[in-house]
Design a protein around this nucleic acid. Sequence first.
DNA 1: ATGCGTAATATACAACAGGGAATAACGAAA
DNA 2: TTTCGTTATTCCCTGTTGTATATTACGCAT
Lengths: 138, 138
Amino acid sequence: MAKDHPLKKTTKGGAAAGLRGRIWIDGKEGTFLGYGRAILLERIREHGSITKAAKSMEMSYRHAWQLVDSMNRQCSRPLVESATGGKGGGGARLTEAGEKALMLFWEFYADLQEFLTREEKVFGDTLAGITAQTGGRG
Amino acid sequence: MAKDHPLKKTTKGGAAAGLRGRIWIDGKEGTFLGYGRAILLERIREHGSITKAAKSMEMSYRHAWQLVDSMNRQCSRPLVESATGGKGGGGARLTEAGEKALMLFWEFYADLQEFLTREEKVFGDTLAGITAQTGGRG
DNA sequence: ATGCGTAATATACAACAGGGAATAACGAAA
DNA sequence: TTTCGTTATTCCCTGTTGTATATTACGCAT
C-alpha cells in the first residue's frame, strides 16, 4: 500500500542504471498538482473524506489538508469541496474542476512515461557503457 | 549567479500556470546524475577544484564532496579524479567518463525541455480553463 | 624542513518539512 | 439536547538535509 510509489528512488533490483522523471503543474504559489496530490485527489473521491483519504495513503491529515488547501487556493474553482458537520460528520468531494485537473494530469503523466521509455531506448546503451564499463575502449 | 535555477519553483511573474519537469539518471544507490550534479561537474571542470566549484555555486564543500563521492561510487570508472597535495594543493578534474555522462545528461535534459514545450502546447488551453476559469459554463 | 592550498573527514548547528496529538467548530440524526 | 465523525487549526516533536567549522593528510615548491 503506497510503498513503492514511482516517487521513491529505490531501484532495488534489476538494472544498475535507469532514467527517472517527474512532472508538476505549477500555479501561482509553486506546485499546483503533482503525482502525490493527484493520488490524494483520487483517494478523496474514493472515500469522500480527507481523513480517510489521508489514512489510506499513510499521510497525516494535517499534510493532506495543507495540500488540498494549496490546490484550492491556486485555482478559481476549488478542486475539492468540503463540508463540516452533518451526516457522518461532514466530508469532502471532488468537484468538476477537480475531475478535469486530474484527467489533465494523468494524460501529462502518461506522456511522461512514454517519453521516458523512448529515452531509455535512445540512451540505454551509452548509459550502460558509463555505469558498467566492462569492455570499453578508453 | 545560480539564483534562478530551473529547479527552484518560482513562477514569479507571467502566466499563472505552467508545466514543470525534472529528470534524473538513477544508479544502484538512487540518484546518479541530475541537474544539480551536472552543474557541479561542469564547475569542477571549469575550476579544477571541488572547493572552488562548490564556492562558485554557493554550495558547501561537504555537500559537493558527497555528491562527487556518490557519483563515483555508482560507476566503474569515476567521473571525477582528485589529487591531494602537490602543486596548488591538489585538485579535481573531470574524467572521460565524466564528460560522457555529462553529455548524455544534457541531451536527456534537452529532450525534456522539448517534451515540456510540446506538452504546454497540447494542454495550455485546458490548463488555463482550470486555473483561471473566467467564462466557463459549469 | 616549511609553507601552501587542496582533499578528506568529523562534529556541531540551523532550517525546514512533515508527523502526532490536542482542540474547537460544525450540523445532521437520534 | 446529546451524540458522532469530520473539517479546520494549533502546538510540539522528530528526522532529514545542508551549512559552518575545525582538523588531518597530502605532496609539490621554496
